[in-house]
Design a protein around this nucleic acid. Structure first.
Lengths: 346, 346
DNA sequence: AGCGGGGCCGCAATCGTTTGCGTTGTGATG
DNA sequence: CATCACAACGCAAACGATTGCGGCCCCGCT
């Protein structure tokens, strides 16, 4: 004989729990919440817990958010999920947010400020408690406004000019220095830089680091050997390299602003019958997946993606629990992964 | 003289709009909603709209969700964002959801059923209106339950045994057939298959298609030449190939269950001093990014990722607006991209 | 003039929680 | 025995929107 069971189409609510436990919903609420549990008698608390358990009660986060104006949710603002840089970062973020009782809401902006604005608006209206932003440009009115209106956020990989915000990134200086030193050791003297967009802090930081590193290695930094890319993309990288080659400049190696830019170079090599590293050495930045299987395997600066995610989530949690805390930024050490795209010049 | 402006820290609500427009909140609500706007006088509607505009009113989705038990949000359940297969699909999904007024909430399951369960639970409690699921296994109690409790969903790339659900995927049969035909034309006769996990519909579909294709091409399908991978991953692909090589089986080509499995083969080639395609040809499936830059560039079956996303979102919207509609499934035509990982056998 | 019928709009309940405040009951104290 | 403190709990008002129902007014008809 199967127990006759009333099927309710709607999920059990706090009322149901209270009724079952023979208490008022308010009491049930207090009993369920560890924070307020001391306010109710231990016995009744047990009763409530048991009742909740028995009917599989799950609090309704929507109702809770409405009342508390909190959501246990943070927003991740990402320029392009298609960029393999981000998934591991996201993973790291989720791995610290989840145990802390938070959920992450991922939005794509496609590098489009308009889209970014509406996406962020939608996040805010859903009461996200903070933002992790990977789309920062040096001039970023939106972020300025958000910061002024008290939105908690942390930046990843980027900074905004004149805005003191917690941020986490790889140590660009160190990374570029390693790349240049590596090439210098191989004997390269004329090294080009395909810089990332100079509207991004990362783009300028790496370009600056490149100049310094050249000097530190006793090489001359020829401005004609630095070309800026409009985006951090393959096609922009290819464009930039074509421009450089067409200019007639002489160079035997290039350090690219990131891996995608470096891979763009591969396309140009194929177009023009150049071979890497025999004709030109190239080193990337970021260590995206599958580089070891490229042709040739790309030498690059590896950064700890997952840890970047982890750290940024931690920073956000910190500022959530103590908004007054002085903004802390963390720099993570990169490392050089030498593969077959770099060799001594001919 | 600057206009004295009252700064309110809290976002404007419907009440504020109503007050400003000199009407009752109910009227304001009706005026704001295009659906119910005909119920109010055109003039007052205009007044309300203007008022809303002037104070920058944005409806609070949380309050709305609480009342309507809807959320204009759908969940995307993805096994692993790190797999480059998914970002373009996500992009396609968002591109149709956004104009339709929906938002997407992405969750990762890491192929872990437990994690999947809690993630889905969290989605449901946030009143998502439907699910797009890319994690389906052939036996999938969770999805069975969800379906029974009336959750609307569509499957992407996968199916569940005995469950009539809308789904969208590439035409695995056609894709595998093209791959095998290509190898056969090159002169291969002993072709191996590194199959995907047989708990996934895709895994078995491709394995079956492989057998059929072998026969159709007048080749013999030797069961000893098919090895199953536990996951759709590089390492599993490598494992499977090692097993095959160690078994002493003779073969000159392999069709891999997907690109990652194929790339796993590359690792084994390096380990054992084999060269591709001279010693062994390999063809992948999915056309993930950057394959053209691999060593060697991987021949693969290209599937229209973006369109898969687009179609799955459309299907979901369809079932949302007419839940009774008979489940429709769409198959998208793949195409073969021949690169340098395939060549005639020596 | 009386009556019916729309068109518009307001009232108030509701969604499921949280929380300030008030009430009750108990034990301890003067 | 009256009083007080305090623990434990209930009451009811929020949070911000949506929506069935009913009231009001005005118009047209007989």
């Amino acid at each position: 004989m199967t127990e006759p069971k009333v099927v309710r189409m709607t999920a059990p609510t706090l009322r149901d729990v209270a009724q079952l436990a023979g208490v008022h919903p308010a009491t049930a609420s207090r009993a369920l919440n560890p924070q307020t549990r001391p306010l109710v008698n231990a016995d009744t608390a047990r009763k409530v817990l048991r009742a909740a358990e028995s009917i599989g009660y799950q609090p309704n986060p929507i109702a809770r958010s409405l009342k508390t104006a909190r959501s246990s949710t943070v927003g991740l603002v990402i320029p392009d999920l298609t960029n393999p840089l981000f998934p591991p970062i996201v993973r790291g973020i989720e791995d610290v947010l989840t145990p802390a009782g938070y959920n992450a809401w991922i939005v794509n902006t496609d590098n489009d400020p308009g889209r970014e604005e509406t996406q962020v608006e939608s996040l805010r209206s859903r009461q996200v408690e903070g933002l992790i932003v990977a789309t920062a440009r040096r001039e970023h009115p939106l972020l300025q406004r958000l910061h002024q209106s008290g939105v908690r956020m942390v930046l990843v990989n980027r900074r905004v000019d004149g805005l003191e915000l917690p941020s986490v990134a790889a140590d660009d200086d160190a990374g570029i220095a390693m790349a240049v030193a590596h090439l210098a050791e191989l004997g390269h003297t004329r090294i080009a830089h395909l810089a990332g967009p100079q509207q991004t802090s990362t783009g300028v930081a790496r370009a600056r680091a490149f100049r310094h590193a050249m000097i530190d290695n006793g090489l001359t930094d020829d401005p004609a050997l630095t070309v800026e890319c409009g985006y951090w993309s393959e096609s922009e990288g290819a464009q930039a390299l074509r421009k450089l080659l067409d200019s007639g400049a002489r160079f035997t190696a290039v350090v690219a602003g990131n891996d995608l830019i470096a891979l763009g170079c591969y396309d140009v090599f194929a177009e023009r019958g150049l071979t890497c590293p025999d004709d030109i050495s190239v080193v990337g930045f970021n260590e995206m997946p599958f580089l070891d299987k490229m042709r040739p395997p790309l030498t690059t600066v590896a950064i700890p993606h997952y840890e970047i995610g982890v750290e940024s989530a931690r920073l956000l949690l910190d500022t959530l629990e103590d908004p007054e805390r002085h903004p802390r930024s963390v720099l993570l050490a990169p490392s050089l992964v030498v593969r077959a795209s770099t060799a001594p010049p001919k």
